[in-house]
Simulated assay, not measured.
Amino acid sequence: MVKFVVTTERRYWWTVKVRVPNADERRANQFEEFSFKVQFEDIGTEEADQILSEVNALPVEQRVTRQHDLLLRVVTNWDQDIVDEEGNAIPFDTPKLRALLDDGRFATGLWRAWGDSQRDEGGRRKN
């Protein structure tokens, strides 16, 4: 059995899937699925709850600009599968992450991946 190592910082990689409507006319009403990996920093429940509480306490008009504060805190890197239109890898930085979070499908994929990474489903069976 592997020993649990207590660290001051724990980061891990997780696959994110983003579904977007297919741009090809022949594939109307179909989705394309893209996947890439992001690195999350595993923060404590107390810190995550504090961030969410602060955002939820804001007036609605201010909440919109802060709705992704938790993701901005926990996403620390991404792999080479996030590319520009020429296929060049886009290096990670917080301003680029913030800009990509304006894409609702990208943001949904990240929220889903982070949520999945927080649940222990190791003992779950597929039927």
Score class of each variant (00 low, 15 high):
35 S>N: 09
124 R>L: 13
102 D>H: 12
43 I>Y: 00
89 A>G: 12
38 V>K: 04
109 G>A: 05
106 F>Q: 04
44 G>K: 00
13 W>R: 09
80 Q>I: 09
45 T>N: 15
22 N>R: 03
22 N>V: 01
113 A>I: 04
99 A>G: 02
103 D>C: 05
102 D>Y: 09
35 S>C: 11
61 E>R: 14
96 K>M: 14
79 D>N: 12
72 L>C: 15
64 V>A: 14
38 V>H: 00
58 L>W: 13
25 E>D: 11
43 I>G: 13
12 Y>K: 07
16 V>M: 04
124 R>V: 15
123 G>N: 13
94 T>G: 03
99 A>S: 11
49 D>L: 07
7 T>I: 04
101 L>I: 13
41 E>K: 14
58 L>Y: 07
112 R>Y: 04
58 L>T: 12
79 D>R: 06
24 D>Q: 06
57 A>M: 07
70 L>H: 05
48 A>Y: 05
31 F>C: 00
81 D>M: 03
27 R>Y: 03
4 F>K: 13
124 R>G: 03
125 R>V: 02
112 R>M: 08
122 G>K: 04
90 I>M: 13
104 G>Q: 09
77 N>L: 05
48 A>T: 08
121 E>L: 11
66 R>M: 14
97 L>Y: 03
73 R>N: 11
50 Q>S: 15
47 E>H: 02
111 W>I: 10
18 V>K: 07
36 F>A: 04
100 L>T: 01
92 F>N: 04
100 L>E: 03
98 R>D: 09
62 Q>M: 14
114 W>C: 01
60 V>W: 10
45 T>C: 06
74 V>M: 08
58 L>C: 12
120 D>L: 07
88 N>Q: 13
86 E>S: 10
32 E>F: 05
